[in-house]
């Protein structure tokens, strides 16, 4: 069954006509061409598809757009202000926190949610905030360092 759904993504209003069982992940990638949101399992296990809904990290593979009408959805494409990257993005790039880069959008959004609530988190707070986002490349160390650097700017 298809339905018209109104979504607000990165400050922009969209009207999509999609099957009601289509996940937010699928709608973002396939209907809105926002392919910056990645997927690693589609089962809510890896955190790769993390987006923000009203500032809270949510796994887009488990979220249904029909329930998100009227909410503010932020994807990786909405993190920069125009051509100016978010301090987290700059820090991740400069400190080598993105190796293959595939988990990076999810990591960045979880990190943004953390910094929005705790602008100067401890290492332990960072670890807890990112504990739902798997990364296979970095051993996490450079990611912590990048979040810490961004928290100081």
């Amino acid at each position: 069954m298809k339905q018209i759904i109104h979504l607000k993504v990165n400050g922009q209003d969209y009207e999509v006509y999609v099957a009601v069982n289509k996940t937010l992940l699928e709608v973002l990638r396939e209907d809105l061409n926002l392919t910056g949101t990645k997927h690693g399992c589609e089962l809510g296990e890896c955190g790769t598809c993390t987006v923000l809904i009203d500032g809270e990290p949510v796994l887009s593979c488990l979220a249904l757009p029909i329930e998100l009408q009227g909410r503010e959805i932020t994807t990786i494409e909405g993190l920069a202000e125009g051509a100016n990257p978010h301090p987290l993005q700059t820090a991740f790039a400069e400190l080598g926190a993105a190796q293959c880069g595939y988990c990076t959008p999810g990591m960045l959004l979880s990190s943004k949610a953390l910094l929005d609530q705790h602008p100067h988190p401890s290492r332990d707070e960072i670890k807890h905030a990112l504990s739902g986002n798997l990364c296979r490349c970095t051993g996490y160390t450079k990611i912590y360092e990048a979040v810490e650097k961004a928290s100081k700017t």
């Binding site: 990638r29 396939e30 061409n33 926002l34 392919t35 910056g36 949101t37 990645k38 997927h39 994807t75 990786i76 494409e77 993190l79 920069a80 990257p85 987290l88 993005q89 700059t90 991740f92 790039a93 400069e94 080598g96 993105a98 880069g101 595939y102 990076t104 959008p105 960045l108």
Partner: peptide, 20 residues
């Protein structure tokens, strides 16, 4: 930094499944 690092942190990098 790596030369492609800004594309990776902005979601611009196109992996195979990002091709339509």
């Amino acid at each position: 930094p790596k030369i492609e690092s800004m594309q990776k942190v902005t979601g611009e990098t196109q992996y195979a499944d990002d091709l339509f």
